[in-house]
Design a protein around this nucleic acid. Sequence first.
DNA 1: CGGGTATGGCAAA
DNA 2: TTGCCCTACCCGC
Length: 298
Amino acid sequence: MPEGHTIHRLAEDVLGRFGGRAVRTASPQGKFAGGAALVDGRVLTDTDAHGKHLFLGFGGAGWVHVHLGLYGKFTFGEGPPPAPVGQVRLRLAAGEAPADVAGEALPEVSRRDGAGPVVSAVTGAVYADLRGPTRCELITEDEKQAVEGRLGPDPLRKDADAGAAWSRVSRSRTTVAALLMDQKVVAGVGNVYRAEVLFRQGIDPYRPGSGLSRDEWDGLWADLVELMREGVRNNRIDTVRPQHTPEAMGRAPRVDDHGGEVYVYRRAGRPCHICGGEVRTAGLAARNLFWCPRCQPA
DNA sequence: CGGGTATGGCAAA
DNA sequence: TTGCCCTACCCGC
């Protein structure tokens, strides 16, 4: 589910399936019917991801801006699309262009370097359904830039300026736990990566940003880059080091709907994989924070 | 089947 | 800070 790694993976997967092709778009329940009609039959020329924001580019027609929020989800299918199940906000389906845009020259498909599967390999009918997003809207290039302008650097983007994040963190008395979740400071980190990166770096979540050393911040950032890249690759969040996997430790694997192996997230009251102490939880800004006091001393 | 919870974010108070 | 958005899944009954 949706932290930044999910969004970057979706940008790759949607481009891989639909990039360079005329895409039929629909919003069966009408919640995005206007926007869907405006891009229907156009070629998906590009996708982009910044933090938790996904952008689907339709050449000059603009970008479909998607934010999954807490519940939003894309599901992909092969073959002719079936009747939509439930509230489908946006359906993408490969198919023929409608008559009014069929004669237009196809725009060139731009690709981010090295990202995603090969477009031309896609031959069969495919579709994707989007349910439950907090945001799904058709926007202009300027509006896209405005959205991105409000976001901090994204550890998954090559153009990320980690120094910009540090300049905000180092001047703030807010806790590092809150700063990591602030999308204006760092874009793409959610509750799982926050808890896990602070644990891995041995940093007390309640320390103020201004109390961190540059080395500590650089360590956090580098770890986020590594963890989140792995997240894109696996399409899930795994954060335990090789020596702490269930196999290495002879412990039962984590069993829940998240799948990935983690140190502290949603492990309140259970023993820390490293020190054996009790993992703690507390509310912080309407979210649950998890940490190990012994491994993350004040 | 109902209640609780969730990897998010916004507006209102 | 709270409520709301709105979907899926888990658990207990």
